[in-house]
Amino acid sequence: MIRMEHVTKRFGPNAAVDDVCIDIARGDSVALWGSNGAGKTTLIRCALGLFAFGGKILVGGHDVLRDGKRARSLIGYVPQELGLYDDLRLSEAVRFFSRLKGLRTPELDAVLGGVGLTGHEHKRIRELSGGMKQRLALAIAMLGDPPVLILDEVTASLDACGRQEFVALLERLSGSGRTMLFASHRLEEVVALATRVVVLASGSVQRSQETGAFAASFGAGTIVHLMIPPAARERAMTGLRAEGFAPTLNGVGVLVPVHAERKAAPFRILAEAGVPVEDFELLRDDRAGLMPSQEKESGR
């Protein structure tokens, strides 16, 4: 359904994507995994025909550069953040994009209701929260029921609650015959949505494997997600590192990979350092160790 052949994209002398070959069969859900700058977003933009590039990308048999309109008519796209006119009402936005996709005027209730935005059709986009904007973007992407869905770090700007809701929405879309290609550095998304993971590093494909094998390759363990006030996060990072942990920041707190029997250790360390912990959550065992930063540290 999506075929990438020797895709190379350079910005000046630097190759953001370097000779990437990926073949995605219909119904497959593929995650692009890698740290910031690995080339995930650039590859997605190439797949949408937004960048000129070397090599070839076919979507449903259509070349995205030579036959871009037809290729994109098969794609629903959700960006990291929806950049629409703030003054546009939801109903206007849905009608506008329906026309661009060659569809008749859709039933607003059905389109917006499908993503939990019933009753918001008269609101302007500026009145929506980040999560609602992303749901609107998903509703627009799903107009016309496209066979391919491309998502670019769609939950990056959402809080924990919004993220869970959005991933639950996407879970219902995957595994229904739709082909999905998405970039993420959130392991819970990858485990929940992907059937295969393509690991990118410095613009090249490092490896491609089944999600289960990908998760297993990082070993068993647990991630303790600690919600810590912004002012105390650096102190928490320093204290945890000093005790041999490899914590990472994620916008609302600190993620600490730990062995299953050492879950309490970060709490003890932070208590001794006088760092307040407002809340916490434990991520499942099969997600442990999948943080991009750990891949980096392991000498990828």
Partner: peptide
């Protein structure tokens, strides 16, 4: 989610 959400479920 409403019943309309089912429309999101199946690809072409």
């Amino acid at each position: 989610m409403t019943s309309a959400a089912l429309r999101l479920g199946a690809a072409s």
